[in-house]
Structures are given as C-alpha cells and as structure tokens.
C-alpha cells in the first residue's frame, strides 16, 4: 500500500460533475498524501480545474464525496460523518457539503487561480493582509475595537503585517510591498498569489497551473518555493501543472486525468512509463491501439476499488 493511501490528507471518492450533457469529471477517486506534493495532470479539457473547483467549494459536485482532515483522516470517522447530515465534526470535513469560505476558514484549504486573481488595485502588502482578514477582524472586535484604536487591535495588526512581510521576504517582493499588485511583473504576481494563499494558514495548498507563463529560471524558483513549503511540514500541496519538468522534479505523487476520468495514479516514474498516459499526451498510432486499450482497462480495474 502506497504512502498516500496510508496517511491521506484528502480523499476524493467517486466524484462526478456534470454540466448539462457534459460530464466534466466522471467518477474520479484518488487520495493526496499528508506532506506530499501531489500533481494533477492531463491534457487540456481533462477536467482538472473543474475538479479543483469542486474541492474548493466553487462548484457543488453532482455526486461523490470529498473528505479532508488537517489532522488524521480516519475511515470510521468519515463513515459516521457521511451518514449524519453534518458538514464536519471539527476535525474531519466533508468538503462537498461546505460553502467556499467555510472550506478556507474551517477546513484550511487554500487555492490559487489559473488566471491570476490578485486584487490588482491594492498593494502587495494589502493583498497579504486580506488573506488574514478573518483573524484580524476578530481582533478588531468586528470593527468596534478597531475604530477606537485599542492596543490589542494594534498588536494584532502588527503581527499580521509581520507575517505578511515574512512572506514578501520569502518571495523577494519586500521592496515592492506598497506597489499595486497589478503593476508587478507576471512571475511576481504568480508568487504573490501563492504567498497570499499561504497567509490563510492552509493545511492543503491547491495551485492551479502555478508555472504557466513562467520562464525556465522562474519555474526553477517556483519549484524551490513549493519544495520549501512542503519541507516545513505544515502544508501539503496539490497542484495542476502542464510543465512536466516542474511536475517530475517536485511531485511525490501524480494523478492523470483525461476526458474527466482518471487514467493513471502513481509515483512520477510510474506515470511517466504508463502507456495510457503516453497515449493521452501524444495520441495513439493505429497499431498501438490494442495495447493501450488493455492498459486502460487494467487502470480502470485497478482504480475502481
């Protein structure tokens, strides 16, 4: 039994998302291991972003279950929770039942977007402050204490600024802290969006194509940043990525989707050799078809359990 099945942080079971007649995600099951970098890959239109939107509450999946726990994901607990009508028991969360902002706040799952969604007109520092808004808002006594400018609020604000500055240092943007986020170069915006997601203090960081549009040096820097986050041990990572050099270099576990279905699941080395994956990416020659079909069937049987 592989590591990500022994100690998963996220378990997706038979997830299906249907838009009218289109099956965007079709009966997908996989697990992401605690402390791993899990990569979700597949050709364009494979359903990766839709799957992400289901995880983070932006879409309500048509059917299926998404179980998540920052602590320990326990089968018995998931079963009890599934039979009850509740969303969570404080430790284990059923994400498909929760609203997007609850998923970030209670379950501690954060995300970035394929097309960067920074607050363009606000400064880099403000972007990182908004990510800490919930805690700050409590410290400000829902504005009443803050309006009076009491010391407890000032201390909380200062702590939040320090945390944000720490992240700005880490992504090399301290000098541009007060510049509007929209004025930063593209690569900096990508990193700032990751830093902003990290400021919500997530247990799982979901990144939608973080290396898209980056040059080789920037991709390398990004890989280092993600590895650094994983090695601190507080945050696991789930990422969608097209840049195979990044995927192969940093991920511990790769899940491959094609046409809404899972076609492969394993370590980077295993997936790289998988004929179904090669077929999905490169197309299939006529005479190879039977072999690929057989491989696909084997996958389907293997993952159906």
């Amino acid at each position: 039994m592989t590591r990500w099945l022994q100690d998963p942080i996220l378990r997706v079971d038979h997830l299906t998302m249907r838009f009218g007649g289109l099956l965007a995600v079709n009966n997908v099951s996989f697990a992401a291991g605690r402390g791993d970098i899990t990569a979700l890959i597949g050709p364009n239109g494979a359903g990766k972003t839709t799957l992400f939107n289901c995880l983070t509450g932006f879409y309500k999946p048509t059917s299926g279950r998404i179980a998540f726990s920052a602590g320990r994901l326990d089968d018995a607990k998931i079963g009890t929770l599934t039979r009850s009508a509740r969303k969570h028991d404080g430790e284990t969360f059923l994400l498909e039942r929760m609203a997007d902002h609850e998923i970030v706040r209670k379950a501690r799952l954060a995300r970035t977007f394929q097309n960067i969604r920074l607050f363009q007109g606000m400064s880099a520092l403000e972007n990182l402050m908004i990510a800490q808004n919930e805690a700050l808002s409590r410290a400000a006594g829902f504005s009443f204490i803050g309006l009076l400018g009491l010391p407890s609020w000032r201390r909380a604000e200062q702590a939040a600024v320090e945390r944000a500055v720490g992240w700005l240092d880490r992504i090399g943007l301290r000098k541009r802290a007060d510049d509007p986020a929209g004025s930063l170069p593209y690569g900096d915006q990508r990193r700032l969006e990751i830093a902003r997601a990290m400021c919500t203090n997530p247990a799982l960081l979901c990144l939608d194509e973080p290396a898209a549009g980056l040059n080789a040096a920037e991709s390398h820097g990004l890989a280092e940043l993600l590895r650094g986050i994983r090695d601190e041990g507080e945050t696991s990572i789930l990422l969608i990525e097209h840049d195979m050099s990044v995927v192969m270099r940093i991920s511990d576990h790769v899940v491959v989707l094609d046409y809404g279905q899972k076609i492969a699941d394993g370590s980077p080395a295993e997936v790289r050799e998988d004929p179904a994956v090669i077929a999905a990416y490169l197309g299939v020659e006529e005479h190879d078809e039977p072999a690929v079909e057989a491989a696909l069937q084997g996958q389907a049987l293997g993952s159906g359990a």
Binding site: F58, F113, G121, M122, I130, S137, F142
Partner: peptide, 21 residues
Amino acid sequence: LPLGRAWEALREDEIACRALG
C-alpha cells in the same frame, strides 16, 4: 480596518475574496 479592506477587496474581485475565506 479589516472590514473596510474587505469592502475594497470585494470591489476588486469577489471570487478571489471567496477563495481567501
């Protein structure tokens, strides 16, 4: 204050606000 900052963030991008909890 956090409330005012959240207002401005909402004006800039509602979806990003939801993704930040």
